[in-house]
């Protein structure tokens, strides 16, 4: 009969518990974070789409309004400040040590 093959990553740490697909189990955890973020992003997109559809059903053409506002130069300044604050929070873990 067939003998079981070697499925382990080359430098797998034999002391780590549970399955990991990459050599460093930390990469498995990081990949898990990415996939979880994907679920959250999809959930938000889905909800936004539903919200726009619900408003359109009520006669509020919010989708076209959003497109207009996105290009409004008066909003650009405030949006940029929001974006910079978001990036600072989001990347703090990397930038904190200088």
């Amino acid at each position: 009969m067939s003998s079981p093959p070697d499925r382990s990553p080359a430098a797998a740490d034999p002391t780590s518990r549970g399955y990991h697909a990459f050599e460093d189990p930390v990469h498995d955890r990081l990949f898990g974070v990415i996939l979880t973020l994907g679920a959250e992003v999809w959930s938000l997109r889905d909800r936004l789409n539903l919200l726009e559809s619900a408003l359109a059903d009520q006669g509020i053409a919010v989708s076209a309004l959003i497109e207009e506002l996105a290009l409004d130069p008066e909003r650009a300044h405030a949006t940029a400040a929001d974006r910079d604050a978001f990036l600072a929070r989001f990347l703090r873990a990397i930038s904190a040590d200088g």
């Binding site: 697909a21 990949f31 996939l35 679920a39």
Partner: peptide
């Protein structure tokens, strides 16, 4: 590696 990791993570999720 990515396919295996995706399958494993998706199962847990």
């Amino acid at each position: 590696r990515f396919a295996a990791a995706t399958q494993h993570q998706a199962q847990k999720m």
